[in-house]
C-alpha cells in the first residue's frame, strides 16, 4: 500500500445479523475504509459486490440463501484481488478452513471487540 494521499478503500459487510452489520459499520475507524454496502445473505452479497466493487469484505459463514464459503468463492472469482475477512463463530473450524481454502484471506472469531475487528482489518490491509 502506498502511504501517499490515501485512496479510500471500499468495505462491504456480509452478515445475516442486523446487529453485527451495524456494529461493524459503527466500529469502522480505519480512515482508509468506507462502508459501501451491507448484505444479509450470500446471493445479495454477490449482487452488491458487482455493483459496488468493494476492496474489502467481512463475511459471515452461516447465512440463508448462499452460505459464506460459497459466497467467498464467487467473490474471488469476480475479483481475485478482493480482501475477505471471515467473521464467524468458532464452532466449526472445518468450515472456516474451507472458506480460507476458497480464497478468504483471514478469520476473525465472533464475538469480537471493536479493537479486535480493527486490528484484524489493519492486518488484512498491511499484507496486501
Amino acid at each position: 500500500m502506498d502511504d501517499g494521499p490515501k485512496r479510500s478503500l471500499k468495505l462491504m459487510i456480509v452478515d445475516d445479523s442486523n446487529i453485527i452489520r451495524r456494529r461493524i459499520e459503527r466500529s469502522q475507524q480505519i480512515a482508509r475504509l468506507e462502508v459501501v454496502g451491507a448484505a444479509s445473505n450470500g446471493r445479495e452479497a454477490v449482487e452488491l459486490f458487482r455493483r459496488t466493487q468493494p476492496d474489502v469484505v467481512t463475511m459471515d459463514l452461516t447465512m440463508p440463501e448462499m452460505d459464506g464459503v460459497e459466497c467467498v468463492q464467487e467473490l474471488v472469482a469476480i475479483n481475485s484481488k478482493v480482501l475477505i475477512l471471515v467473521v464467524s463463530a468458532l464452532a466449526d473450524k472445518a468450515t472456516a478452513v474451507d472458506a480460507i481454502e476458497k480464497g478468504a484471506n483471514g478469520f476473525l472469531c465472533k464475538p469480537f471487540t471493536d479493537r479486535q475487528l480493527n486490528d484484524a482489518l489493519e492486518e488484512l490491509l498491511s499484507e496486501a
Partner: peptide, 8 residues
C-alpha cells in the same frame, strides 16, 4: 493472511 488464520 498467516496471522488472521491462527485462531482456526
Amino acid at each position: 493472511n498467516e496471522k488472521l488464520v491462527k485462531t482456526i
